[in-house]
């Protein structure tokens, strides 16, 4: 690794030199390698050992402590492909991602736009939508179990606004447990989406907005054709994080429903935990983790590729 780095850095131009002239297309931009190297070396140096170690463990049948692990080659992987719970978890992840990402993005975006407008008591709303982000799922899980219990506050509220027929034991049924998990996730992460959109909207040129308004564009029109494209970078970043996050989903389903009832809220993250820690199938868990890594990268690259294609179309 050291040799690669020095080769590359050897070829770089001095970073403090003036920006050279010349067309950008011919690579006239200054060399950026020294700028990214600190972060790269730091992240790769600290975490790649974990990835390599996990990759190695994934070829073992091992309980994590026994002095004699058995090598099984790719056996764990072929077993996973026939594991119905794995496929169930993948399916849950897909549904979960589509729903939570859409809802979170819509709400976070609208919130950010509304709170950039002249709304009274803005700080109060900001704190309320942000607070869930900082609350640890471990402490909130019992609160949610209580809220969604058969005699919980949600059913109580439904009763009192004349929707009593909707009351049900939300977490006890396979059909409603997943929507509850999605609700909690959206509740928890909208604040994040909001904060990022709020920051991104600060980058939109007020003069453009002003010009559009002078041309008689409505609020909705401004939102759709100026603000939304203006924060696309953030949307793409959030989509990539969303894919990775959905695959890693662990806290909420593990703490609220323990993946149940009957695996109806099982995700890759909860499955990996259950397999590697309580069941101590360290090798199988490592193989699941490596598959998770690959799927997450494929998903994130797909999002990025799609975004690039769109960029190409729109920048005619």
């Amino acid at each position: 690794m050291t040799s690669i780095t020095s080769q590359k850095t050897g070829a770089r131009r001095p970073s403090h030199a003036p920006l050279p002239d010349g067309s950008r297309k011919r690579g006239g931009r200054p060399w950026g390698l020294p700028w990214i190297m600190p972060a790269f070396v730091f992240v790769v140096g600290l975490l790649y050992y974990c990835i390599i170690e996990t990759g190695y463990l994934s070829t073992l049948d091992w309980d994590g402590t026994s002095p004699t692990p058995t090598s099984v080659g790719l056996g764990n992987y072929s077993e996973i492909l026939q594991d119905p719970i794995f496929w169930k978890a993948i399916w849950h992840t897909v549904v979960f991602f589509v729903v939570t990402f859409t809802v979170q993005t819509a709400i976070g975006f609208v919130f950010a736009a509304l709170l950039h407008s002249k709304v009274k008591l803005g700080a109060v709303y900001k704190v309320l939508v942000f607070t869930p982000v900082v609350l640890a799922p471990a402490t909130m899980a019992p609160v949610f179990r209580q809220m969604f219990a058969a005699d919980g506050q949600l059913n109580w509220a439904l009763d009192h606004i004349g929707l009593g027929f909707l009351a049900q034991p939300w977490l006890a049924q396979s059909s409603t447990a997943m929507p509850v998990i999605m609700f909690i996730t959206v509740w928890q992460f909208t604040g994040l989406t909001f904060v990022l959109y709020f920051a991104a909207m600060g980058q939109i040129d007020p003069e453009t907005l002003e010009a559009a308004r002078t041309d008689g564009a409505s609020n909705l029109r401004v939102l759709v054709s100026i603000v939304w494209p203006g924060v696309r970078g953030t949307t793409v970043a959030l989509a990539m994080l969303g894919v990775i996050g959905a695959l890693k989903t662990f806290d909420v389903p593990y703490l609220v429903t323990i993946g149940g009832p009957n695996y109806s809220t099982e995700f890759l993250g909860t499955y990996i935990y259950r397999i590697s820690i309580p069941s101590a199938h360290v090798g199988y868990g490592a193989a699941l983790s490596i598959l998770l890594l690959i799927l997450a990268l494929i998903g994130a690259i797909a999002v990025a590729a799609r975004a690039n294609r769109k960029d190409g179309e729109s920048s005619v």
């Binding site: 790269f40 974990c50 996990t54 890693k248 662990f250 993250g269 820690i277 998770l292 994130a300």
Partner: peptide
């Protein structure tokens, strides 16, 4: 993408290494 890949491992798996 090599930097981003580091984001994908669950924390439980990272602990031992």
């Amino acid at each position: 993408w090599m930097i981003l890949a580091a984001l994908t491992l669950p924390e439980v798996v990272l602990l031992t290494p």
